[in-house]
Design a protein around this nucleic acid. Sequence first.
DNA 1: GCCCTAGGTGTACGCCGTACACCATTCTCT
DNA 2: AGAGAATGGTGTACGGCGTACACCTAGGGC
Lengths: 234, 234
Amino acid sequence: MAQQTEAVRRTPLTRDRVLRAAVALADDIGIEALSMRKLAKELGVVPMALYKHVSNKEQLLDGMVDVVMGEIDPPAPGSNWKSTVRHRILSARRAFLGHPWAAQVIQSRSSPTPVVLAYMDSVIGMFRTGGFSVDLTHHVMHALGSRMMGITQELFDAPPAPRAQTAPSQEDAGEYPYVMELAGAVAHDEDSVLGRGCDDQFEFEFALDLLLDGFERLRQQGWSSAGHLRGKTP
Amino acid sequence: MAQQTEAVRRTPLTRDRVLRAAVALADDIGIEALSMRKLAKELGVVPMALYKHVSNKEQLLDGMVDVVMGEIDPPAPGSNWKSTVRHRILSARRAFLGHPWAAQVIQSRSSPTPVVLAYMDSVIGMFRTGGFSVDLTHHVMHALGSRMMGITQELFDAPPAPRAQTAPSQEDAGEYPYVMELAGAVAHDEDSVLGRGCDDQFEFEFALDLLLDGFERLRQQGWSSAGHLRGKTP
DNA sequence: GCCCTAGGTGTACGCCGTACACCATTCTCT
DNA sequence: AGAGAATGGTGTACGGCGTACACCTAGGGC
């Protein structure tokens, strides 16, 4: 038997192969449908074989996030902190947009992997070398929150979704007048500046720039949290 | 038999009782440990009994969110849009802080319940009556994102968590210099303006005010998305 | 030839959500 | 008053999940 056994034993399965297969499978079937058993089947292997490469499903998810983070461009050096940070964040956004499950997964992790930590370190570094104090940098990082990774966390993309329960749209229009007004304006925006409904990329950059501009103002005026005692006892 | 059967049949189990019990149980044991079976046991009932009141677990989660939203104060009328919005959002935050699982759950819902929609409607209304155009209100709501509900979505509260793998803290300090600098500053902040580590409430209000101030500036200068064509073909 | 180890296997357990058939009580209509 | 339907709790069962544990097998170093 020159050809060993059947046709299997093609490549001996590594942690990296497991993670990449998991990412691809999650891209295909969605993160909630991803299971150790399906992943094993995809790799032509018995479920328990995976446990020789990742210690459990949590660590699998951590590893999957790391794979996605690996797709972020390296930091492009630049003279100006704002454009440097902006580019890095938009690059992260690009990576996460390619794997819609990843945003949800990274938010569910309880502690960052070294890869995530390295990314955060690079962003913090951009603020520090851009002239932000440690104090201001700290608050600014909090203010960015998950947006630092290009993650928007809108609530609900589609507003109501045809909930077949109460009366049809006529009553709805009366119940949520402002929502309807806004939804209406966004809907027939064909001839407006943003084509087709709602441009997620525009919304992201709008919010990001609003924050970055705010940061710049605070930096320029030498803001410090010491100037903002909010009536706390000392 | 004056007392019926045993001692049971205390209250006949309603949708409301189910939801409230679910909220309490999730508060106790965490959302990931909440199961239909445990909830049933908590209510002294067989698991399938729940399905007479909620059609499935998804709808249970929707209902739980609605219970939490019910704890938000009614909108306090006020002359000034910023303080009105601010109070409403901070009130929502208070409600969500009481149920740490709720932020995660609401972000996982695919479409808003009527209760959530009503809340969003009230916030949109505050911007509109405060002098914001439909256009600007739209973008402003996106920029708030989940912060509109008082939800921060920081990534990771505790930075590294003693990952017992590579060498101890000495190497870490070299690998993530900016993270360490920032963590150090936050840690021994006992005598600084923010006591004990990191004041989540302060961070939330810092970011919220940064956004609200930015909104106000745009409103005053009559901002419109038409003035910000980002090099798109018309 | 020997043993060690890395990596794949098979079985099994306890948990999960929920479909479906059943039954007990209570309410309504005649 | 009695029939019938509706309401709501029960019991059983199924398929899927993560993973502990014992096992086997192929390859490498001595």
